[in-house]
Design a protein around this nucleic acid. Structure first.
Lengths: 239, 239
DNA sequence: CATCATATAGTCAAAACGACTCATATAGTC
DNA sequence: GACTATATGAGTCGTTTTGACTATATGATG
């Protein structure tokens, strides 16, 4: 940045043609599939109301204001399209291929976010905002299909070693609910006993003394995510 | 990117104050420590010849030309400061805090790179380019100290599960040389037998029928990195 | 109170891993 | 030419982790 061997003028003087910065967000939630009833990953898209790619669906996002932090811009676009606050927000990747946007050189810093399922149910939907099943997307604007694909890969790999699945749930939840999240993300069934063992050994949950009654079986204990455990998470820039 | 709900004019019209895009690169190589003789991580820095932070050392980089790919810009700054080609180059993170550069809003897409040790030995050094031991850096310009710290964390975690260590070496190398790389990066001794076992089971190397002679002991077999194995590496945007 | 369905606990073998032993092959030394 | 130092490369052993499986607990239902 501000490397001196190349730039003898200020960047604004040097070139009239500059890359433009945008921020986009891949927002995941879990909701029951219409057919199977099983929970699957969904994400909101916005319809483009201008060229390029007018009419196509695209990731929510916008130009980066010079006075707004990157993560704040991602959270804002998330709020504006879904009326939700992210339970988890992390930078995914920066996409900057020259030809990814016709005409203008656009470099997009993409974030990915997780929001709670129940809240997302009543999330705003309109003519220009719609939720799609993450693995059944139509052709999207720009390179957004591959962006989503990469975000999906990141979510699926990270859920296996990081404590992020609880971001889809409320403050307290049963192990069965947490397992349901893992199963939905990984798209495979998990053994309840083994799942319990691995979660317990990770020390990421605190067991409350509350139970959920009403079901036609032994009541399940409610757990809470252990915030103190987050201190042991990998370092580096998050959010 | 090009989100429509927010932006009713083109971004250029909308705001005269825009963020400026830069690309920087953390370039790692291995070289023997002056005292211990053990190989440690080193990286090249450039001295700032203008404000802000005039005189301080900084990561090599520069403004992003609108007609150059992000990774190409990273590789170019790498070539311009070290005269080397990267054996490994990957996007690290995009740093964009509002106050990270005084005055101007600069968003830096940072790459990290590995270059071969032997070649880096004769790499260009000058008044304004110098190599530093990665864990003994002076106070750097901007947020570059934390950038390097994050790059170091990324290198150390990734070398344990990805096949990147060979990027420090030549086309063929002994297992002892590869182990020396791992030991230098992880800063701990590794059991030769166990290291051999894990590498062999990973299937990332092809054994040649060549051996290195001259040493006062049993000659070690030379191995070659298996390019076909790279197909099984994680997907997503690389380089 | 028998039954059902899931929560929770426990078992067992295979695989992965760390620490360790030992035979092998060269170059240098006597 | 025998001996020695040294690192390669193969193998052993016990511990930990992991996946598949079995068994028990408990409230709701009829």
């Amino acid at each position: 940045m501000l490397e001196q061997n190349l730039t003898e003028q200020s960047p604004l003087e040097r070139s009239t043609v500059r890359a433009t910065l945008a921020v986009s967000t891949v927002i995941f939630t879990l909701r029951p599939d219409d057919e199977s009833g099983l929970k699957t990953l969904w994400l909101p898209l916005v319809r483009r109301t201008r060229d390029p790619h007018l009419g196509l669906w695209a990731l929510p996002g916008g130009w980066l204001p010079a006075d707004e932090e990157l993560a704040a811009a991602a959270a804002r676009t998330l709020r504006e399209t879904t009326d939700l606050s992210p339970r988890y927000l992390e930078q995914l990747y920066t996409f900057g291929d020259i030809d990814r946007s016709p005409g203008l050189r656009v470099v997009s810093v993409v974030y990915w976010a997780l929001v709670r399922s129940e809240v997302a149910e009543r999330a705003s939907v309109g003519e220009n905002v719609r939720w799609f099943a993450a693995d059944q997307l139509p052709p999207l604007a720009f390179d957004h299909n591959s962006v989503v694909e990469y975000a999906l890969w990141r979510l699926r790999t990270k859920v296996e070693y990081a404590r992020i699945a609880h971001a889809f749930l409320g403050d307290t939840f049963t192990l069965a609910q947490l397992r349901e999240v893992h199963e939905a993300v990984l798209q495979k069934a998990l053994d309840p006993a083994n799942f319990r063992r691995s979660i317990e050994s990770s020390g990421s949950l605190i067991s409350t003394d509350q139970h959920v009654a009403g079901a036609r079986h032994r009541p399940a204990r409610l757990y809470r995510y252990d915030d103190r455990a987050a201190e042991h998470d990998p370092p580096g820039p998050t959010m």
